[in-house]
Nucleic acid binder design. Structure first.
Length: 893
RNA sequence: GGGCGUUUAGCUCAGUGGUAGAGCGCUUCGUUUACACCGAAGAUGUCGGGAGUUCGACCCUCUCAACGCCCACCA
């Protein structure tokens, strides 16, 4: 017997290890089944599960399970990422707490610490994925710093260097003064801030009375000025071009140059040029061969290129000091309050400094051209489609990708330098040495951007650069599911690398899902303290409920607001299913071997069997189109709304002898009734089993448990290996569906009337049908037990001619409901109800008539629409007539 | 500044060129042997404003507004 409630905690803990042990998560490279490959976006190895993962992983697991059931050889490749900066930061913080710095330990010891931390916390995220019920091929779990993946990184680096797509260059980078490292454009976050625009007068050489005014938001950088630029068309300054100005405080001479970059409309029209500390100025400087004076050190403190009393000052302290000095010199012409965007490090949170250094760059622009082609030709398709355009726009403005980081945790750059600074790129030190005979070489201390190694994920995890049969079979992947927030960081870079090294796109489709926000629509973040922990929800409502919430919320193109109410609602759904199964068990309604759903005779059974097919089709169709919300809605609606609310209720009278015994008029022999009951039991069991299969990808735990205990309680197989139902079209029986629709309508109407008339719940009423057609009579007979049970009727009587005077009627097709218990009825209320209904119908008729009276409509509307309007009108009129009769009779009473 | 998205029932959100939908919440009723984490019935909307295309617009076009996100070097 099933327990009273679904104990999800117990079931989850018991089921998962069994699944994993059974080995069905594993791909089957030897099989010749059609394959389904999906690469898990590797989470940070030392991280823990957040809502975004829960969404992302649930969707992947649903499709993996679905495809596995469809009989495909499914590879869901799991793994984790070393997450360079993030992980190094955590360990540095730990050291900090011990009062140490990473420099104290030295590189080797520090890396040992990081590996220790990885060993300690690295299992968290993967065990949490198991809690969620995810079924990737764990045996293949990869880590971006595994030996073979690291080999791939080196190989790629060297090859790109040889191909001229990777090079070392001295240019401005986004420098993070806190991490002492370069970061990529993508890791810079522009934050809007209040600031000032200072107008400063620079004196001209030789004519100290004349000045030229420049405007700047960063006065401290004037110590590195090497020119003033004015627009060549700017009449105000034409005469000054070629003259020299004096940088205040620094007392250095700089030329006044003409450059289009200076916008006469902006500021004073003259702009100071600081090539070493501004991206635009850098370009201007290159155009005019200006010297580049770097005035900062790696902490963004002023260095020896600044006047002596500024050296060592932090940049903002320097700003204060210089402003004070300018004021004293009375050359601070004015100060404007402005809001502007200031670049910040997305992880460090400090202001990013454009900084002149040597770094390694990937020629992303060149490499992304084939990516554009692949997307345009449809070799990789993005879902939703609008991301494709955004992608193209981004690629259009692509800058070289700075891939070196001045960190220790990561893949060390495979480049060596000799005493003269000449660089040797090679896979090993021996090879590098061979290129530099007789020289002493030292390795580049920098490591690569985390995303460099994850860009190789689709093939490095399959054994590349080795010759691995897996690579042949599973590349390119069928699908990538990830959040749109890492489309530039990761998706496109995988495409660049995949196309370059594998000669083919890494995946055929990319499904980009939205972000998970908190209940108020805010991004979840630790600093805001609004993070909802998926593990908490799993503990409270079960993994199935959380998974279903994720799936049901995943409409395309919209962020998801996470609310606990919704999870609770789907927890209730698991309970509902559990109880339905319990009901089946109580009624011996189990699936039977050899049962052929297309052979059922009873209308109810024919109908439900067709509904199962419709539902299965809807789910499959929705999943193939990545409409997870529609798929979820279909199975939810069928299970609860169709199976539980209607089918089980409809069939109860046939299964329950107590209810059936007071039905003596149905005319069926008890043998025939037994046959019906038997068919219902078998069908019910079959439907339950289909629900368990269809729902399994979404709610694996509860379905597996019920499958084991009810549906396949003797054989002990599992849904993991069960086939996705493939039904014959013959299951659809239109006539049966129409019959049941009629019965549903009758029952709903009777219920509605009962309720409106305040008939006490316990009181049974009679349905008296006047002048019924033969078809209606037949139907009434077929659904007699169901009508009595579900609409709480005492009897159904057939009358011809006028109904008894003191009765009240409501209309259900031709059926007339008569309530002989006049005392129970509030006449005024009933009159009001009828009048209201009539008024509404009359209004509907007016609208319909107006429509049909419109010549253009009649001329242009398609036939079926026109017909619909005509029948509609007739129906409305019939109902009004019947209601009017009822009202008449009411008045008579 | 550029781009994108959103605006539908009290809340969270689906949705389609042909008389508006779900879940939650709310109201009323209900201990009928699966289920109160339940069942039945019900109320609530000029589908953001305006204009246009169409026989017909919540859906297509334009425009305005509000909110959100992304991108951007304007000193």
């Amino acid at each position: 017997m099933l327990e009273k409630n679904f104990n999800f905690a117990e079931v989850e803990a018991r089921q998962y290890p069994q699944w994993e042990k059974s080995g069905v998560f594993a791909a089957q490279p030897e099989s010749n089944k059609e394959r389904f490959t999906i690469m898990m976006p590797p989470p940070n190895v030392t991280g823990s599960l957040h809502m975004g993962h829960a969404l992302n992983m649930t969707l992947q697991d649903i499709l993996t399970r679905y495809n596995r059931m469809k009989g495909k050889d499914s590879l869901w490749m799991p793994g984790t990422d070393h997450a360079g900066i993030a992980t190094q930061l955590v360990v540095e913080r730990q050291l900090d707490a011990e009062g140490k710095k990473r420099a104290d330990l030295g590189r080797e010891k520090f890396l040992e610490r990081v590996w220790e931390w990885k060993a300690y916390s690295g299992g968290t995220i993967t065990s949490q994925l198991r809690r969620l019920g995810a079924t990737p091929d764990w045996d293949r779990e990869a880590f971006t710093m595994d030996d073979n993946l690291s080999r791939a990184v080196v190989k790629v680096f060297v090859q790109l260097y040889k191909d001229g797509l990777l090079y070392r260059d001295k240019r401005l980078v986004n420098w993070d003064p806190k991490f002492h490292s370069a970061i990529s454009d993508l890791e810079v976050e522009a934050r809007e801030m209040k600031g000032h625009l200072w107008h400063i007068q620079y004196a001209l050489e030789g004519e100290e009375a004349r000045t030229i005014t420049v405007a700047t938001t960063r006065p401290e950088t004037m110590l590195g000025d090497t020119a003033i630029a004015v627009n060549p068309e700017d009449e105000r300054y034409k005469g000054l071009i070629g003259k020299m100005a004096i940088v205040p405080v620094a007392n250095r001479l700089i030329p006044i140059i003409a450059d289009e970059y200076a916008d006469p409309e902006h500021g004073s029209g003259a702009v100071k040029i600081t090539p070493a500390h501004d991206f635009n100025d850098f370009e201007v400087g290159k155009r005019h061969n200006l010297p580049m004076i770097n005035i900062f050190d790696k902490d963004a403190h002023l260095n020896e290129n600044a006047p002596e009393d500024y050296r060592g000052l932090e940049r903002f302290a320097a700003r204060k000091k210089i402003l004070k000095e300018l004021e004293e010199l009375e050359i601070l012409e004015k100060v404007e309050n402005i809001t502007h965007t200031v670049p910040h490090g997305d992880r460090s949170g400090v202001v990013i400094e454009p900084y002149l250094t040597d770094q390694w760059y990937v020629d992303a622009k060149t490499m992304s051209q084939p990516v554009v082609a692949a997307i345009k030709s449809g070799r990789t398709e993005m879902v939703p489609k609008n991301w494709e355009k955004i992608t193209f726009d981004w690629i259009d403005n692509l800058q070289p990708w700075c891939v070196s980081r001045q960190l220790w945790w990561g893949h060390q750059v495979p480049a060596w330098y000799d005493e003269d600074g000449k660089v040797y790129v090679a896979e090993t030190e021996e090879e590098a040495q061979a290129q530099a005979p007789g020289k002493t070489i030292t390795r580049d201390p920098d490591v690569l951007d985390t995303w460099f190694s994850s860009a190789l994920w689709p093939f490095s995890t399959l054994g590349w650069p080795g010759k691995n049969p897996d690579l042949e079979k599973y590349y390119p992947g069928s699908l990538l599911i990830t959040g749109f927030d890492i489309i530039f960081f990761w998706v496109l870079r995988m495409m660049m690398m995949g196309i370059h090294f594998m000669g083919d796109v890494p995946f055929k489709k990319v499904y980009l899902h939205a972000l998970v926000l908190d209940g108020k629509g805010q991004k979840m973040s630790k600093t805001k303290g609004n993070v909802i922990d998926p593990l908490t929800l799993i503990e409270k409502f079960g993994a199935d409920a959380l998974r279903f919430t994720m799936s049901a919320s995943a409409a395309q193109g919209r962020d998801i607001r996470m609310s606990e109410d919704r999870v609770e609602g789907y927890r209730n759904f698991t309970t509902k299913l559990w109880n339905a199964a319990k009901y089946c068990e109580m009624n011996d309604a189990f699936p039977k071997e050899g049962f052929d759903p297309s052979k059922v005779k009873n209308t109810l059974n024919q109908w439900i069997v067709g509904e199962v097919l419709n539902t299965a089709n809807s789910i499959a169709e929705a999943l193939e189109a990545y409409k997870f919300n529609e798929a979820s809605a279909a199975i939810y609606q069928f299970t609860w709304g169709t199976f539980c609310d209607w089918y089980l209720e409809f069939t109860k009278p046939y299964l329950n002898p107590v209810i059936r015994s007071d039905d003596e008029e149905s005319g069926d022999s008890s043998a025939a009734q037994n046959d019906i009951a038997e068919e219902i039991r078998t069908t019910t069991g079959w439907v339950l089993e289909q629900i368990l299969r269809l729902l399994n990808p979404f709610m694996p735990f509860v379905t597996e448990e019920l499958y084991g205990q009810i549906a396949r309680r003797e054989k002990g197989d599992t849904l993991l290996t069960a086939a996705w139902p493939d039904y014959p079209k013959a299951l659809i029986r239109k006539e049966a569906a129409a019959e049941i629709a009629w019965a549903q309508k009758v029952i709903s109407e009777i219920r509605s009337v009962r309720s409106d008339m305040n008939v006490p719940a316990g009181a049974k009423i009679a349905l008296v049908v006047q002048d019924a057609s033969e078809a209606t009579k037949k139907r009434l007979k077929i659904y007699d037990p169901a009508l009595k049970q579900m609409a709480r009727l005492s009897s159904i009587e057939l009358l011809s001619g006028k109904a008894p005077g003191r009765s009240i009627k409501a209309i259900v097709d031709e059926a007339t409901l008569i309530l002989p218990i006049a005392e129970l009825i509030d006449l005024d209320k009933e009159r009001e109800r009828l009048q209201k209904q009539i008024a509404k119908l009359e209004d509907d008729i007016r609208k319909t008539e107006a429509k049909l009276g419109n010549e253009q409509f009649v001329a242009n509307a398609p036939a079926e629409i026109l017909d619909e309007f005509r029948t509609r009108k007739v129906e409305f009129q019939q109902m009004i007539d019947k209601l009017a009769t009822a009202l008449e009779q009411l008045e008579a009473a």
